[in-house]
Computed example of a mutant assay.
Amino acid sequence: MFYHEKLTGPYHGGVWRIRVELPDAYPYKSPSISFVNKIFHPNIDEMSGSVCLDVINETWSPMFDLVNVFEVFLPQLLLYPNPSSPLNGEAAALMMRDRAAYELRVKEYCEKYALPKHIQAAPEESSSDEELSEDGYNSSDEAVAGMQTDP
C-alpha cells in the first residue's frame, strides 16, 4: 500500500487503487498510470481512470522512477488540479464555476468509492494483457494510493 501523509484538501482520507503499466522501453518511456476506483478530478478521466499529467505524459525522463510518481507526481496532481487541461470536463467546469460545490462532489466520491473498506472489498482485477515478459516480470502492477489516517 502507498500512503501519502501530506495529502490535504477534499481528497484527504481517500484511498485509490492505481494501475501502473510499464512499457518495454521503461524507464526511457513513461509508465501509463490510471485510477481503478472512481475519482472526481479535472485531470482524471472518470470512466477509464486515465491520468493527464504533463510530467508523465510529455516530460518524462529516465531519471524519474515510480517512487517519484507515487510520492510527488500523484499527490501534486490531487493537491493542485489543472482545470485548463481537463480529461473530465464536468469536474473542470464545476471547479472553475463553484469551488465549494466541486470540493463537496470530490468528498462525495471519496465516501462512495475511496474509503479503505472499498479497496479491501474490491475484487482483484484480472486482465488478459498482463503477460509475463521474457525476464519473468509482470509488465503491469497495481498499488494503492491514499492518505494514512493513523501515524
Rank of each mutant, 00 (worst) to 15 (best):
F2W: 04
F2D: 09
F2A: 13
H4A: 02
K6A: 12
K6P: 07
L7A: 10
L7I: 07
T8Y: 00
T8C: 08
G9A: 04
G9N: 06
G9I: 08
P10L: 08
P10S: 13
Y11K: 01
H12A: 05
G13M: 03
R17V: 11
R19P: 02
L22R: 09
P23R: 00
P23V: 08
D24I: 08
D24S: 03
D24H: 04
A25S: 12
P27R: 11
Y28M: 09
K29A: 10
P31E: 06
S32Q: 14
I33N: 00
I33P: 05
F35S: 04
V36Y: 09
N37D: 12
N37G: 09
P42L: 06
P42Y: 10
P42M: 07
N43Y: 04
I44R: 05
I44Q: 12
I44V: 15
S50I: 14
V51W: 09
V51P: 11
L53M: 02
L53D: 10
L53H: 05
V55Q: 07
V55H: 06
I56H: 12
W60T: 09
W60H: 06
W60C: 04
S61P: 08
M63G: 12
D65Y: 00
L66P: 01
V67L: 08
F70C: 08
E71M: 09
V72E: 12
F73M: 09
F73E: 07
Q76C: 14
Q76K: 03
Y80H: 07
Y80T: 11
P81G: 08
N82R: 00
N82V: 03
P83W: 11
P83S: 14
S84G: 13
S85N: 13
L87C: 12
N88G: 08
G89S: 10
E90I: 09
A91I: 05
A92D: 14
L94Q: 02
M96R: 12
M96W: 12
R97Y: 03
D98T: 02
A100V: 10
A101I: 02
R105H: 10
V106R: 05
V106G: 01
K107S: 13
K107N: 06
E108V: 03
E108N: 06
C110M: 15
E111H: 12
K112N: 14
A114K: 07
L115H: 12
P116H: 02
P116R: 05
K117Y: 03
Q120M: 02
A122W: 10
P123F: 14
E124D: 12
E124Q: 10
E124N: 09
S126W: 11
S126I: 14
D129G: 06
D129S: 06
E131C: 06
E131N: 11
E134D: 13
Y137I: 00
N138D: 04
S140Q: 12
D141R: 15
D141E: 15
D141G: 15
E142D: 10
A143R: 04
A143F: 11
A143Q: 11
V144P: 00
M147S: 10
Q148L: 14
T149C: 05
D150N: 11
P151R: 05
